[in-house]
C-alpha cells in the first residue's frame, strides 16, 4: 500500500483539477464548508467538521425535478442537470477530497435510500460522477459521538482513504477500482510503504480506538427503544418535546436526513414552470398532516420521538444501516441544546 507526504497533497489536488472538479473542506468564518476549489492549497484537511455535510452535493437543498408547460401545451420534462457541480460539462467527474469516516457512513445511508427500490436519477446522476477521498480525524470534537456509533473508522464507501500516521505522512487505503486508477494516474505523488510505516499505521489505529471509542455503545439500543416508546421512561420524550422548538435545523445539517417536500413554481408568463424538491424536516408541525387537518404526529413530543426512533431504530430495521453517524452537527446547531448522545445515554441508563 502506498503513502503520501502531506506537502504533496495540494500539488496532487492541483494536478487533479486539470481533469476533475474538486470539492473539499475550506475555512469560512472560523468554521468549515465543503466548497469547489480552484487551487490545491485551499483544501484544509485539518478541519474538525463542516457546517453542512457533503450530502448537499448529491442531494441539494433545492433541486429542480421537472420542468413543465401548462394547460393545452401540457408537457413534462426531466431537469437532470440542475444543481450539479459542473453545469457546462455534464459528464465531468468530480472528486470530494477530505471526507471524514462518519460522513462516508452517511453517504452509504443515502446511497441505500436513493439508489434502491425506485432508483432516484437525480441523486444517481451526481453520485455516479463522484470520487470520494476520505481523510482521518485525529481528535474527536467535543460535540462528536462517533465513538458511540462506531463510525470513526470506515471500510467502504470511498475510493481512497488517507489515514494520517504522523505529522507529515498519510497512509493511503484503496477502496475501489477507481481509487486504484487514481494511484496509477498520479504515480509521482505516492511512494511505497515500508514495514516501518505499517507499524506506524497499526499504532495509530490502536491509539484511535483509545481516543475515540466510548464506554457507551449502541448495542441493544433498538430493543431498548422498543420498550421505551410509551413506558414509564416515556418521560424522556415528554422532556425532549418540551425543550424542542420544532425549528427543524437539526435535519438541515444532518448528513443522513433525506426527507423532502415537493413544490411547483410557475414562471411569470404563467405558461410554464418547474417542480422542485426542497429539504424538509419531520420536526416541523405540519410534516404528517393530511387533508382535513388530521395530524399523525400532533405533538412536539411525538415528533422528536419519531426523529430519534428513525435515527436509532427504524433505519437499522429497514436496511441494516445507520440513521445517525454521530457527527454531532445537530448538537452544534440545536438552539434548545438538545444533544443526541445525551438521549442515547439516557435510554441506555448510563
Amino acid at each position: 500500500m502506498p503513502l503520501i507526504k502531506k506537502q504533496k497533497i495540494p500539488l496532487l489536488v492541483d494536478k487533479m483539477l486539470k481533469k476533475f472538479d474538486v470539492i473539499g473542506p475550506v475555512p469560512k468564518d472560523e468554521k468549515y464548508v465543503f466548497s469547489k476549489v480552484s487551487r490545491g492549497e485551499e483544501v484544509f484537511l485539518g478541519y474538525d467538521t463542516s457546517i453542512l455535510p457533503p450530502k448537499k452535493i448529491f442531494f441539494p437543498q433545492e433541486e429542480t425535478l421537472i420542468t413543465f408547460k401548462k394547460d393545452e401545451q401540457l408537457e413534462f420534462k426531466p431537469a437532470l442537470e440542475d444543481g450539479t457541480p459542473s453545469k457546462t460539462d455534464g459528464d465531468r467527474k468530480f472528486v470530494i477530497f477530505g471526507v471524514h469516516a462518519c460522513d462516508i457512513h452517511a453517504i452509504l445511508t443515502l446511497d441505500k435510500q436513493f439508489m434502491e427500490v425506485y432508483p432516484d436519477p437525480y441523486y444517481i446522476s451526481k453520485r455516479a460522477r463522484s470520487l470520494i477521498i476520505g481523510v482521518s480525524c485525529r481528535e474527536p470534537k467535543e460535540t462528536c459521538f462517533c465513538g458511540i456509533m462506531g463510525t470513526y473508522t470506515v471500510e467502504k464507501g470511498f475510493d481512497l482513504f488517507l489515514e494520517q500516521i504522523d505529522e507529515d505522512e498519510f497512509y493511503v487505503i484503496v477502496g475501489s477500482d477507481e481509487g486504484r486508477k487514481l494511484l496509477s494516474a498520479y504515480p509521482d505523488f505516492f511512494e511505497a510503504s515500508t514495514e516501518e510505516t505499517l507499524e506506524k499505521l497499526r499504532k495509530v489505529l490502536k491509539e484511535k480506538d483509545e481516543k475515540f471509542a466510548d464506554s457507551v455503545s449502541i448495542t441493544g439500543l433498538p430493543t431498548l427503544l422498543e420498550q421505551e416508546f410509551d413506558s414509564v421512561n416515556g418521560e424522556i420524550w415528554e422532556e425532549l418535546g418540551e425543550k424542542c422548538l420544532g425549528c427543524g435545523t437539526c435535519c438541515l445539517v444532518c448528513p443522513t436526513c433525506f426527507c423532502f417536500n415537493v413544490v411547483d413554481k410557475v414562471e411569470l408568463s404563467g405558461k410554464e414552470g418547474l417542480t422542485k424538491r426542497v429539504w424538509d424536516s419531520c420536526l416541523l408541525a405540519d410534516f404528517a398532516v393530511i387533508a382535513g387537518g388530521f395530524n399523525f404526529r400532533p405533538t412536539q413530543t411525538s415528533r422528536i420521538r419519531y426523529r430519534i426512533y428513525h435515527k436509532l431504530k427504524y433505519e437499522l430495521e429497514r436496511g441494516g444501516i445507520l440513521g445517525c453517524v454521530g457527527c454531532g452537527r445537530c448538537n452544534i446547531a440545536c438552539p434548545a441544546g438538545i444533544k443526541m448522545q445525551d438521549v442515547i445515554k439516557k435510554i441506555k441508563g448510563e
Binding site: 427500490v117 425506485y118 433525506f258 426527507c259 424538509d280 419531520c282 404528517a288 428513525h310
Partner: peptide, 8 residues
C-alpha cells in the same frame, strides 16, 4: 416512491 419520508 419511498424517498421523501412523509408517509412513514
Amino acid at each position: 416512491i419511498g424517498k421523501c419520508g412523509h408517509c412513514a
